[in-house]
């Protein structure tokens, strides 16, 4: 084996990830409650979504609060193809990913010239515009949305009535794939380019990094994965409308786990989602139907708390301590 500590650390990561996937895959043996299974599916989905968001906003430093646009794009493309043309979600989800990647490039083209908080505001505004568009687009069901007919359990159509377990395993696979993509990218030159562009764009350019092209690539990849998640979610809930797949709360829920767990870290989004999503589901059930406002207040407080107290997130704080501890 190798003695290079860097390669060793990477190998440890992959073993840990496989171990985590194995343990989570065994959870349904013990968890039979449908409500809890539901929370597990959402937790895994948000782990994957936040991992996708982290590519653009964590590694590349382009903080997006408009990823609901790509999530909704994935949901709508998947379901329009399914309900209007009979295309199976297995093709609809990647198709949604491609459409979202193109939209992300079109959004990025003007917006990557904006600095810092102007970029954030632009992402919010553009996502809101997409939301309004879907609200008024009759072909896509406008405000009524699209009801997805579910007749029988079918892997071909990726829909299940009786059991949540197929969704659970898909969400687990999705979370693992998103993690794996990040893992592979982490040691490719793209992640170095992204981090360099984030820290100092002028210096990056002087070292041969095409900052603009790098950001475009990050946005496209991030949007693609997010939209696949949107397509999955649409199948999972089997009903979509603008509010339920493009609302601003999705943008927040994709960003928050990564921020809490550690921006631009490999494990941050998964750790953050594991804490945050069960927590929000709990508050929602305590606060009953009117929980939405309370959710938003809690998210807002969390973002403020993290930004002020531990900007490096949980994973960042732990690795920093580990580094200090080393001789």
């Amino acid at each position: 084996m190798t003695s290079d500590p860097h390669i060793k650390a990477r190998r440890e990561n992959i073993f840990v990830a496989i171990g985590v996937v194995f343990v989570v895959a065994c959870l349904p043996l013990f968890v039979t409650d449908v409500y809890v299974q539901n929370v597990l599916v959402l937790t895994l989905m948000y782990a994957a979504l936040s991992q996708s968001w982290n590519i653009l906003s964590g590694f590349c430093g382009q903080i997006s609060l408009g990823h609901a646009l790509y999530f909704g794009t994935g949901a709508y493309v998947t379901e329009l193809l399914f309900t209007k043309f009979g295309v199976a979600p297995w093709f609809g989800m990647p198709a949604g990913g491609l459409v979202a990647a193109v939209i992300a490039a079109a959004v990025g083209y003007p917006c990557f010239r904006l600095k810092g908080h102007y970029f954030v505001i632009a992402t919010i505004v553009i996502a809101e515009a997409g939301y309004l568009l879907m609200l008024n687009w009759d072909y896509a069901g406008a405000a009524q949305g699209i009801d997805i007919p579910v007749r029988a359990d079918s892997w071909a159509k990726f829909q299940f009535l009786r059991s949540k377990l197929p969704y659970f395993y898909f969400a687990l696979g999705f979370a693992f794939v998103a993690w794996l993509v990040t893992y592979m990218i982490e040691e490719s030159r793209w992640s170095y380019w992204w981090r360099a562009a984030k820290d100092n764009a002028d210096a990056a350019e002087s070292l041969g990094v095409d900052v603009f092209r790098s950001k475009m690539a990050a946005a496209a990849l991030s949007a693609f994965l997010t939209a696949v998640g949107g397509g999955f979610y649409a199948q999972f809930v089997s009903y979509i409308d603008p509010e339920s797949v493009m609302g601003f709360q999705f943008s927040l829920l994709m960003a928050l786990p990564a921020v809490l767990g550690g921006l631009g870290t490999l494990w941050g989004p998964a750790v953050g989602a594991g804490i945050l999503i069960p927590l929000t589901e709990l508050t929602r059930s305590f606060a009953g139907g009117s929980g939405k406002g309370l959710d938003l207040i809690i998210y807002g407080l969390l973002v403020m708390g993290i930004a002020l107290g531990r900007p490096e997130g949980i994973v960042g704080a732990v690795t920093k301590r580990a580094r200090k501890g080393r001789p």
Binding site: Y192, W193, R195, D199, V209, G264
Partner: peptide
């Protein structure tokens, strides 16, 4: 400098 990157990672950016 790329302040949140290690010294060796800073240099790797150039090597890429």
């Amino acid at each position: 400098s790329f302040e949140t990157m290690q010294v060796v990672e800073n240099v790797m950016v150039g090597a890429f």
